[in-house]
Amino acid sequence: MPRVPAPPFVSLSRCLAFCGALTVLVSCGGAASGDGAAGGAPGVPLGVTATAGSATSVHVMWNAVSVSGGVGGYEVYRGTTKVEEVPGARHMVDVTRLKPSTVYVFTVRARDKQGRAGPLSREVRATTPAAVAADRVAPSRPGGLRGRAVGSRAVQLSWSAASDDRGVVSYDIHQGATKIHSVGGNQTAAVVTGLRPGTRYDFTVRARDAGDNVSAASGSVGLTTPGTDDGRDTSPTGFRATTHRADGAYHLDLSWVPPRTDGVVTEYQIQLDGRPATSLVYGGPAPRDRAAEYSFYLGPKAGVSHRVRIRAKLPDGTWGGFSAERTVTTGA
């Protein structure tokens, strides 16, 4: 097990600091679709759409596919050529370096974690607009952004059209700082799905023209999905906590199994005695289907008891439920 000790005689309060934060894309797709048979390859991605984002880019989206063991990734094809590959947590991609005034055909297929590929989706078409020479003027910002929850896992947004000297080609919807959706320039409304019940989300919209100039963000709208989410389906399992003594001090050793999500969990928050103690952020590959381990400094005194539990930041950017709480005593 990797050890992450602090220097001897460092107080506990100095160790209770956050390591960082991570923003992950929220799903554009709707309910899981195209279920694969148990033990078989993934099914067909449904709900595939393609919208020109500029004269040289197209935004492709699809619904999540459900398969035993989880989706490992999605492949996006332009004609017969694979042009993009994204992790299983993502259900959208911007295909770039395209030609203006051109019709493109796209399909999507899923791969499971063993590498088995499912069938291709139906074909969808998008036509890039004509290029606009020397266009350096961005559209005006969209106005009047408003929204409402549509059930416990989706919201509906609407806004006033932006203006541009050459015309608005598309609108980008952002959750926080992350682009999560895109619609055509003739639309001033969108539905964002794949959300969690009882969770607050903040959205903004930006306009984009054929020259890929992007407007300033609209005003922000905050929406809370109704319902409750007790977190049991999103909490780490098999959580264990022990202590060991090294270099004259005690250290807390933790292990757990990551929650099963449609995507990889790369950040955890550890709570000690009812308050956040530290965050664990993976800079490289994160454990997914095997136990994760972490160790940090507690202090030099024996006989001190602590309560500890852990939760994961989910691929949609929200926190999952806490694990079961464990009690440990240094020197026990």
Rank of each mutant, 00 (worst) to 15 (best):
R3T: 12
P5N: 05
L12S: 06
R14N: 08
C15R: 15
F18L: 13
C28E: 13
G36E: 06
A38H: 10
G47S: 03
A52Y: 05
S54N: 10
S57G: 13
G69H: 04
Y77W: 12
Y77N: 05
T80P: 13
P87A: 04
D94A: 13
D94G: 05
V103I: 10
Q114R: 15
A117E: 13
L120H: 12
R122W: 09
R125I: 04
R125N: 09
A130W: 11
A133R: 15
R136C: 09
V137R: 13
A154P: 12
V155E: 12
V155N: 08
S160L: 12
D165H: 11
V168F: 04
Q175H: 15
Q175V: 12
G176F: 04
G184Y: 07
G184I: 02
R196P: 08
T199C: 06
F203Q: 06
V205R: 03
D209W: 01
G211P: 11
G222E: 07
G231Q: 05
R232N: 11
T234A: 07
S235Q: 15
F239I: 00
H244D: 15
A246P: 09
L254G: 04
T261G: 08
V264E: 15
V264C: 08
Y268N: 04
L272N: 04
D273C: 00
A277Q: 05
A277W: 04
R288G: 15
R290M: 10
A292R: 02
A292N: 05
A302L: 06
V308W: 00
W319C: 02
R326L: 03
T327V: 08
T327G: 01
V328K: 01
T329Y: 01
T329C: 02
T330V: 00
